[in-house]
Design a protein around this nucleic acid. Sequence first.
DNA 1: GGTGTGACCAGCT
DNA 2: AAGCTGGCCACAC
Length: 117
Amino acid sequence: MASETEHQSFFESVYQVVRLIPYGRVTSYGAIAAFLGSKRSSRMVGWAMNASHSSIENIPAHRVVNRNGMLTGKFHFGEPGLMAQLLENEGIITENDRIVNFREVFWDPNKELELNL
DNA sequence: GGTGTGACCAGCT
DNA sequence: AAGCTGGCCACAC
């Protein structure tokens, strides 16, 4: 057995979900964590994003915000304001580093996505 | 291999 | 009501 072992690290799982976020939509760290099974592991999701720079794939980390809809990780994009700019570029309205219509653009993987692992 | 950390969340004071 | 602390779990040194 053993085979290749899909050692899919927690990070990889997070990347997949983040990659599945539709254009013009956002989600929260807790939502992704809950989708992965550990609602309280939301911190790991954020940390995974920190390592997203190591991923060769483009991770739309700007579509991931906290449950308040605030752009908490904007400082990690190299330049502050870049995250908000990317979001507005997708039609998402942000104000004061916070998504105005967060409720409207919120994309819950638990609801939209099905357990197809 | 123990310790620390981290872009959170929720509960307690 | 608002601020803070704890918890949680995976990764880096």
